[in-house]
Nucleic acid binder design. Structure first.
Lengths: 119, 119
DNA sequence: CGCAATATGCAAATCAGTTGCATATTTATT
DNA sequence: AATAAATATGCAACTGATTTGCATATTGCG
């Protein structure tokens, strides 16, 4: 697989990089209407496979994508639907899980609840 | 909301109860071809709202459902695609997360890696 | 520059999940 | 047990996200 650094590819990635939070394919298309939605999908898949970005699926209708700064977790507010990002001591959590016969590559903690603004 | 205990509703729930692991709407429809897929969707939504079952979303194309025995977490093997269930000390994990301004209702830990049979 | 490989756009397809509506089943009430 | 109101089901058709096929355009190497 020999990837090319096309203009549109860079624009899509920069949009994700500079955006604080997650974006769906559609969100990106709204920001970049000059790029076909299919191209956006193909590049998001590509970046995800290359682990440049992360696809997150919180059970909403659309998949969300974010530039992978440092691994972190997500809290979904059931009231305002906002996604909050937070980090946690993954190593300590891994120890608590006690998965002896499983080679853990990635831990993702998803929290559901109510954010400070909503209660 | 006044629910009725219909035959098909019971059959769908029993299928989930007796199945060890998760099932998608489609999986259930294959097991119960006599029940319309729409009825299955509607009942899965209902059971989920009533917290009788749990909808889990591992980033695959279809949502998965499972009868809610006791809350637990999931590990997805990237090699064999099997879903492993495990429990963890949720209270201790919650403390590690340090989400001060967020009312945590539910913690879900999803692990990705390789299971013992696959490495 | 010229060519081969890869990317893009458009149209059309697919796939999961949802909705409208007519009919059937359940449950509370006689 | 019969009736009526409420709720559930099936079918067809729809929606919205994502994917695929194919012709054309762009990129990167020699």
């Amino acid at each position: 697989m020999n990837l090319k650094l096309t203009k549109k590819r860079q624009i899509i990635l920069n949009t994700l990089k500079s955006h604080d939070g997650t974006l769906s394919a559609n969100d990106i298309h709204k920001l970049l209407p000059e790029i076909d939605i299919v191209t956006i999908y193909r590049n998001l898949d590509l970046f995800t496979k290359e682990k440049i970005i992360k696809q997150i699926n919180l059970g909403t209708n659309e998949a969300q994508y974010e530039y992978q700064q440092q691994p972190h977790h997500h809290a979904l507010c059931s009231s305002c639907e906002k996604v909050i990002h937070f980090t946690a001591p993954d190593e300590k959590i891994r120890e608590l899980l006690g998965l002896k016969d499983f080679q853990v590559d990635e831990i993702e903690v998803t929290v559901k609840g109510i954010c400070s603004k909503s209660h």
